[in-house]
């Protein structure tokens, strides 16, 4: 169809499809920026996805089992069934993300082919490689976990458009997400006022590119969006992470392992929007039923710790 506007004369010359550019860093990082101030919820069925969307989630993360169940089941955790991912994509209008194993670039290619909006290269699944995915080669953006500034910068250098704390997924224990967010923020604060030589030494010490460390020093934040994840289970947990500097929050098992998922989902969204208002936090935290039972992260045997996956 030809444009019918009186102003259309010049449009036809310019807007041919070959002039469009896809998958640029600006588009990838831009997508992540649109998630800021929001809650991204783990879902395993289209019904759960609909509940998440209705509660005000900015996106959903499609996976075959929430992290708490992955822990319980043991075995190898892989990308979710493409049929389920497709059903979830069809059930909602908000963006759909999905997890691929660390280093498993073919799972990521399949997710891209399915029309997933963002891939989470996640330590919650069983790693496939000691190397992470070369993410710059993809059209869609990636989010990756990090425990400190070095990990965050390495993932960004590989092309991650968004970082999240690793925390300790599937525990409902927020302490590890707190630890990782504090580590990243305090490492960035410590860069303030350093000269080039000092920044170069930090970059060497933490195994990061100098340019990224210098950018963090200048911006006083990561150059990409930084969310909290791994153990967020209550509205108070979500608000805590926002006050520690998170741009938004991922909630994994915290919603659909709670007694009343619908109420918990709405309450956590409200908590992220009103993180600095204790009155509102008190109101939205009332009468939610039991939060997920959870697991004290300090009691987990070493072989079952997820956050040490990746480097």
């Amino acid at each position: 169809m030809r444009p019918t506007s009186p102003f259309n004369v010049r449009f036809e010359a310019v807007m041919e499809l070959e002039n469009l550019r896809f998958g640029t860093e600006l588009l990838k990082r831009g997508f992540a920026k649109m998630q800021k101030g929001g809650v991204i919820m783990d879902v395993t069925t289209p019904e759960q996805a609909a509940i998440a969307e209705e509660a005000g989630a900015v996106a959903v993360m499609a996976l075959h089992a929430v992290p708490a169940d992955i822990r319980k089941m043991g075995g190898v955790a892989r990308m979710a069934d493409p049929a389920v991912i497709e059903e979830i994509i069809n059930a909602v209008t908000i963006p759909v993300m999905a997890k691929a194993r660390i280093g498993h670039f073919v799972e990521a290619q399949i997710l891209e082919a399915l029309g997933v909006d963002m891939v989470d290269e996640s330590e919650v699944l069983t790693p496939a490689d000691t190397f992470h995915i070369e993410k710059t080669k993809f059209t869609i953006p990636f989010v990756c976990g990090a425990r400190n500034l070095g990990e965050a910068c390495r993932r960004i250098a590989e092309g991650a458009a968004m970082i999240r704390t690793k925390g300790e997924a599937g525990t409902g224990d927020v302490s590890q997400a707190v630890l990782h967010m504090r580590a990243i923020m305090s490492q960035i604060r410590a860069l303030k006022g350093m000269d080039d030589v000092e920044l170069a030494k930090v970059a060497r010490d933490i195994g990061a590119k100098y340019e990224l460390v210098a950018e963090c020093a200048r911006m006083q934040r990561l150059p990409v969006v930084n969310f909290a994840a791994g153990g967020v289970a209550t509205p108070a947990d979500a608000a805590l992470m926002m006050l520690l500097g998170a741009d938004g929050v991922f909630v994994g098992s915290g919603i659909f392992k709670s007694e009343n998922p619908r109420a918990m989902a709405i309450a956590i969204v409200q908590a992220v929007h009103n993180y600095d208002n204790p009155q509102v936090l008190a109101r939205v935290s009332k009468g939610l039923g039991a939060a997920m039972k959870g697991l004290d992260a300090s009691t987990i045997p070493e072989g079952e710790i997820l956050q040490s996956r990746g480097w």
Binding site: R10, G23, I89, V96
Partner: peptide
């Protein structure tokens, strides 16, 4: 979806 997100020079 995001795969189809793009940059373009617009008149």
């Amino acid at each position: 979806s995001q795969k189809a997100s793009f940059e373009a020079d617009l008149a």
